[in-house]
Structure formats: C-alpha cells, structure tokens
C-alpha cells in the first residue's frame, strides 16, 4: 500500500495535480471573496458570468503556472493571460490577437513552412487550440499537444471533483 502510494507520489502528473489544485483552490477562495466591479448592468447573471470567467482564467493560469516555463504552451498561455489580465479584457482572453511584430514574422514563417504540408487543416486547427502553437512545427506541435491534453485532463478532473465536493 505504501509502495503504491509512493509510486503515485513520484508520478509527475500527480505532483502536477497537487500543485495545480493548491494554486487553483487558493485563487478560488480569493475570487469568491472578491466582489465584482460595478457593472453597467449589475445583474446577478452578469456577476455570475464575471465570476465564471475569473474562475476560468484562474484555472488556466494556475495550470500554466504549475507546469512552469519548461513547456512552450505554458509559456504562451502565461503570456496571453498576463496580457489579458493587464488589459482587463477578461471577457475575451482568447481573442487577444494583437499581432506583435515577432508574431507576424513567426506567422509568416509558419505559413511558408507548414501551410503546404498540412494536407488537412487538422494541424492548423490544432495550432489555434494549443497556446503558442501558431509558430510550431508539426512535430513539436504534436508534442505540446500531448502535454497540453494531459494537463487539461488533470485540470478537468480536479475541477470536477471540487464541484462535486459542493452540494448545490
């Protein structure tokens, strides 16, 4: 029993889970304490949406933070979230498409290199899904996708178990 537990502890995804849930729970507590800013509509549904968005951002950012900077997608995600939170545009954090010069160059390169090779648009779609995937070559894109998927699963599991922990 202790052996199984030990191996489970050594499992990196397990420690990732632990780190993520710690961070996320902390942020969650803070979010729940916080009050939404005065809104134009001030309706309760707006507040709920605000909260949900906050929680979603918190989930993603704590995931990215718990992964660290060793992964491309987590770096990209952190940058994106930081830009979003700085702009207070929480409602469209995915839509921060401000093209920096670097990104434009990267995109050009990407198009040149990969566009013809993507026989199907699958990889292109995948690029839009995985943070930072716009400028990746297919191989690293697939790698990052694998890691990203694993982290997303962990995230969903933790969040779900938190939700289940609360009776509604």
């Amino acid at each position: 029993m202790t052996l199984a537990r030990d191996t489970a502890m050594k499992n990196p995804t397990n420690s990732l889970k632990r780190r993520f849930s710690l961070k996320f729970l902390k942020t969650l507590v803070r979010i729940r304490k916080s009050r939404p800013p005065p809104s134009p509509s001030a309706s309760s549904s707006w507040e709920i949406r605000w909260r949900a968005q906050k929680i979603k951002l918190a989930a993603y950012s704590s995931m990215a933070l718990s992964v660290g900077s060793k992964r491309t997608w987590s770096r990209a995600l952190t940058m994106k979230l930081r830009a979003t939170m700085g702009n207070r545009r929480w409602s469209s954090w995915k839509g921060s498409k401000k093209m920096t010069k670097r990104r434009i160059v990267a995109k050009k390169n990407m198009e040149k290199r990969h566009l013809e090779k993507d026989m199907n648009s699958g990889l292109q779609q995948l690029r839009q899904l995985v943070p930072g995937g716009e400028s990746m070559d297919p191989r690293s894109l697939l790698e990052e996708t694998a890691h990203f998927v694993r982290c997303l699963e962990t995230q969903v599991r933790v969040m779900r178990s938190i939700v289940e922990g609360f009776p509604c």
Binding site: K56, V149, V156
Partner: peptide, 30 residues
C-alpha cells in the same frame, strides 16, 4: 492521420468546454 487529428481536436475542445462549464458551475456554487 486526418481522422485522428480531428479526434484530438475534438477532445481538446471538449476539455476546454468542460473547463468552461465547470468554472461556470463553480461560480454558481452556494
């Protein structure tokens, strides 16, 4: 490969949707 990629994309999207849903649910908690 194409089908597989589609499947992967669907899966990632569903996971993201789940995150969204769960965060919504978390926000409506008591």
């Amino acid at each position: 490969k194409a089908l597989m990629l589609d499947e992967i994309i669907n899966y990632v999207q569903s996971l993201q949707r789940q995150v969204e849903f769960l965060s919504m649910k978390l926000s409506t908690l008591n």
